[in-house]
């Protein structure tokens, strides 16, 4: 816990300084933090040993909610749009959660994949509403009541996202340390024993599922606003796969790792795509295998040796 806080604080300072020292990286970092929120959602489920190959669904739900609200020209502020996106994602997840939490392992991964792919197909199909494969443009909303130009919006959106990330990281850290969060670890190690103790594993998982979708929706909303564009590929299974990938990269089950992982991922992806167009997927694939084989605790835990992660 103390290690993570220290590490988190150092990371926070490093990240917070970026707009001053490397201004062009501001948007890239904001995107990385937005994706990091969705990855944190996957991390919560990983605590229970469950992976979802369909969290793109909730990511897309948050992003499209923001896009629809902006297109409706209600003049909503960023600080209202983001919670709205998270809320819609959470509602969908809580409803679908009644089915999803009955499944474990591969079947849990697969039913999530099936539902997100249905959503993906619908986003493509319902052309007149969702813009189909073209997606929707998201005009820049106000931020805290201010109408900002590109440069200052990018600057302040970064700090807004960073603030959200810090609050979310602390809250999720608390949640994972609480009995509800410890219950997730029990599901991973031995669910039957947990049930013999009279604890409903379905309920614990259901709550985690809602929390994780809320995070994904929040992340999707951030991305929609920062990039100004949403597209059906947000719900595509490969996108969900990326979230899982980054979670493993950062250290499965680790809060700070989710964000560290997504920053590293975003940088590698940007540079790999620019300088090794034919090999960037290979670079990512090989590094994923290397981490699973040689550093199963992920990037953040590598420097601390064998210490078991706990937030």
């Amino acid at each position: 816990m103390r290690f993570d806080l220290l590490f988190g604080a150092i990371a926070f300072c490093a990240v917070a300084g970026v707009p001053f020292f490397i201004p062009w990286a501001t948007v890239m970092l904001t995107i990385a933090l937005g994706v990091g929120l969705a990855v944190l959602g996957v991390v919560v489920l990983l605590r229970a040993g469950q992976i979802s190959f369909g969290h793109g669904l909730y990511y897309a739900a948050g992003a499209y909610t923001v896009a629809f609200l902006v297109q409706a020209r209600l003049g909503l502020d960023t600080l209202l749009l983001l919670p709205a996106g998270a809320l819609v994602a959470t509602v969908i997840a809580v409803a679908f959660g009644f089915f999803a939490v009955r499944y474990r392992d591969i079947f849990f991964a697969m039913i999530n994949l099936a539902v997100s792919m249905v959503a993906f197909s619908l986003l493509e199909k319902l052309y007149s509403i969702t813009g189909g494969g073209d997606g929707l443009n998201v005009a820049r909303p106000t931020l805290a009541g201010l109408k900002l130009g590109r440069v200052s919006f990018e600057f302040w959106m970064f700090y807004t996202t960073l603030a959200i990330v810090v609050v979310v990281a602390l809250v999720v850290g608390r949640y994972l340390a609480s009995p509800l969060g410890k219950g997730l670890e029990a599901i991973k190690s031995n669910e039957t024993r947990l049930e013999y103790l009279g604890v409903s594993s379905a309920r614990i998982l259901h709550i985690a599922y809602g929390v994780s979708a809320c995070l994904a929706g929040l992340g999707g909303g951030v991305i929609a606003i920062v990039t100004g564009h949403v597209a059906p590929e947000f719900a595509y299974w490969v996108r969900s796969g990326e979230f899982v990938f980054i979670a493993i990269l950062g250290g499965a089950g680790n809060v700070v790792g989710a964000f560290a992982g997504s920053i590293v991922y975003e940088i590698v992806r940007n540079y790999a795509a620019a300088f090794a167009a034919d090999y960037w997927q290979t670079i990512l694939g090989v590094s994923l295998i290397a981490i699973i084989m040689f550093a199963p605790q992920g990037l953040t835990q590598m420097r601390f040796g064998k210490k078991r992660g706990g937030a």
């Binding site: 990983l46 040993g49 469950q50 992976i51 392992d105 591969i106 991964a109 796969g241 899982v244 990938f245 493993i248 990512l284 694939g285 090989v286 994923l288 295998i289 699973i292 199963p296």
Partner: peptide, 11 residues
């Protein structure tokens, strides 16, 4: 199992 699945994802 989860990690195995991810390895095939990498592949």
């Amino acid at each position: 199992q989860v990690l195995q699945l991810l390895v095939t994802f990498a592949v």
